[in-house]
Amino acid sequence: MTDKKRNVFKVLTNGFMKENPVLKLVLGTCPSLAVTTMAKNGIGMGIAATFVLLGSNIVISLIRKIVPDKVRIPVFITVIAGFTTIVEMLLHAYLPDIYKELGIYIPLIVVNCIILARAEMFACKNTVGMSILDALGMGGGFTIALLIMGSIREILGAGTWFGITLTKNLFDPAVIMVLPAGGFLVYGFVVAAVQKFSTLNIRNKEIAAGCGMSCAGCVANDNGGDKA
C-alpha cells in the first residue's frame, strides 16, 4: 500500500522537476519560446495544454487495449486534435483576450510534442488513474516553466508583471527580452540554472548517503536506480 502511494506521488511530481518537459526534456520548445512574452500568456498556454493533455491521456488510456499498434499514432493525433478543438472553442467563447494573444499557437497544441510524448510513453501503457496523475504533473511542470520564462521576459522586457507596472522609474525595459532572441536567451539561462540546481541536489543526496569516495559503490547504486 505504501509502495503504491509512493508510486502515485512519483508519477505526479515527475513532470515538475525530474522530467520537466520544457526544462529537462526540452520538449514543446516552440510554444515555450513563442508565447512567453508575458506571464499571463504563459499561464494561459500552460493551462490550455494541460487541459488537452488531461483529456487525451484519459481517452488514450481508456482505448489503449483496442487500438491496433500499427495505427496508434494517427489515433492519438485524432484524439489530441479533438481536445484541442474543444479548448480553442472554449477560449474563443470565454477568454477572447487570451485567445487573441495566443493566436495560432492554440491550434498548434495538436502538434505539441509533450502531449504526443505522454500519450506514447505513458498513457498507452498505464491505467486511467495513473494517466490522469501524469497529465496533471506534466501539465503543471509545463505551466510552471512557461510562467517562469514569461515572468522573466515580461519584467525585463516590458517592466510589468501580469500587466502591473513594476519598474516605472527603475530602468528602461530591454525590448529584446520580449523579442524571439530574448526568448532563446532566457530559455538558455533558465535551463542552465535548473540543471545546476538539480545536480547540486543529487550531489547533496550522495554526500548524505555517505559517499566516502568509494566510486564502486556509486556505480552499483546507479545500476540499482535504473532498474527501479
Binding site: D172, A174, V175, I176, M177, L179, A181
Partner: peptide, 10 residues
C-alpha cells in the same frame, strides 16, 4: 546589436 534592439531610443 543587443543594445540597439533593446534601447533603440538611446
Amino acid at each position: 546589436a543587443i543594445l540597439t534592439v533593446s534601447w533603440a531610443r538611446w
